[in-house]
Design a protein around this nucleic acid. Structure first.
Lengths: 223, 223
DNA sequence: TTCAAATATTACAAAATTGTAATGAAAAAG
DNA sequence: CTTTTTCATTACAATTTTGTAATATTTGAA
């Protein structure tokens, strides 16, 4: 949770930064240079990357391009060279923010959180081992694609965008079966739930994702 | 296009900023204060709002909250009070960026573009009068829902996320029919294009959205 | 425990989707 | 102009989706 990658060759600065961010609830991994940084990035999962511009073995711009080409993780430049050309360049290679040293700690945290928040509102909806990639209209379980029909897909999207929130039968019916004044029977929903469970649950008889709340409706919950 | 709302009570600053941004290809609407600003915001459609913190008839924070509560338009604070507390506060009310005066023009443009770009990668895909709401998995034409099958939906999403870009037949087939090592004949695509056109084009015989580029592939274009 | 309500499951027909093949039309090449 | 290639259109069967109804099963309350 709140895993951050810091790529910075100034060890003492890195130390103090890590300490501070840790005190703010982040868990920080530190890489000293480009090679190191990319390796770490590809091994672990980070919610945000803090990147120094000038490194011993490469510059921040190329790392940023590299990271952005293979993922969507937020990247924030953290650098002494806050000159305008570098800043513009930073955004051009896909950075999410660019902060000049010396940084003010609370602002730094605010900007990191901002970047993470923006990223979180992105097209990937997840619930335990099931992911919907809304930017492609595809659902995957354990990275293996599951084919959902149009309505199954919509129903699951509805659940996942309201993860943890109870949805009444009425609300669900309204949301899904109001596209042409159609009216469908009440039992239809039961059947759709069953079909979704059969496709996404490890053990459909003991659903861990699509929970029923008796008398009230259904909700999707995380593991 | 690139319509920006500037809410700023310093007239001379606003003038020079507007001029500069216009020279960069933005079209800027200017409001002097809070009341004015909100009115304009609700009347027109903006891609980004630039907001001064201190206004005669209200403060920027409340405008920002207001805007964010009713839309997702990027908001950037532009302010003299670049003190840390204000900055943090700005992000807390939902700002997308916070820039202290005096601003460096090219950086300002870079940050505006950054905010707009981030926002553009959001859930609404549009092409002339057809909209895909990926956050619901629904397609609408002139605000009227169109029912697409699972694969039709995916195909259209593929086109819309690559608006204006040519997609080769091969690329399309790869993207759509590789979910289980299936191989489908080449003519399948022709048929899907036809089916989509029948559903989304005003005159399917003269497609204005899904254009064929003979010998190369297809692309979606805006009106 | 017994009962009633709510949900799960199954089975089934009507309708829609999906992929293919055959035929037509349009555009580029010769 | 003719040929060839590419794409559009149509028609069709296999499959899947979709909604319903009928039958279990579960749950909570009496």
């Amino acid at each position: 949770m709140r895993n951050i990658l810091l790529i910075e060759d100034d060890i003492s600065l890195a130390k103090s930064l890590s300490g501070f961010l840790a005190s703010e609830g982040f868990s920080v991994a530190h890489a000293l240079g480009m090679t190191d940084g990319i390796e770490l990035f590809e091994k672990e999962n980070f919610e945000c990357v803090l990147l120094d511009l000038s490194l011993d073995d490469g510059n921040g711009f190329s790392i940023c391009s590299r990271i952005k080409s293979e993922s969507d993780t937020p990247v924030i430049f953290l650098t002494a060279s806050a000159d305008e050309t570098c800043t513009v360049m930073g955004f051009e290679v896909g950075a999410d923010d660019y902060i000049g040293k010396p940084f003010r700690p609370r602002e730094l945290v605010a900007r990191i959180k901002n970047a993470i928040r923006k990223h979180a509102s992105q097209p990937l909806l997840q619930c335990s081992n099931v992911i919907i990639d809304t930017s492609r209209g595809v659902c995957r379980k354990n990275n293996c694609e599951i084919f959902l029909s149009a309505l199954e897909y919509r129903l699951l999207v509805l659940f996942f965008t309201n993860k943890g929130i109870l949805l009444s039968r009425e609300k669900i019916m309204d949301e899904l079966w109001t596209f042409s004044g159609e009216f469908v029977g009440d039992s239809t929903l039961n059947v759709y739930i069953k079909r979704l469970r059969d496709k996404i649950e490890d053990d459909p008889a003991n659903p861990q994702i699509l929970k029923t709340v008796r008398g009230l409706g259904y909700k999707a919950v995380d593991a």
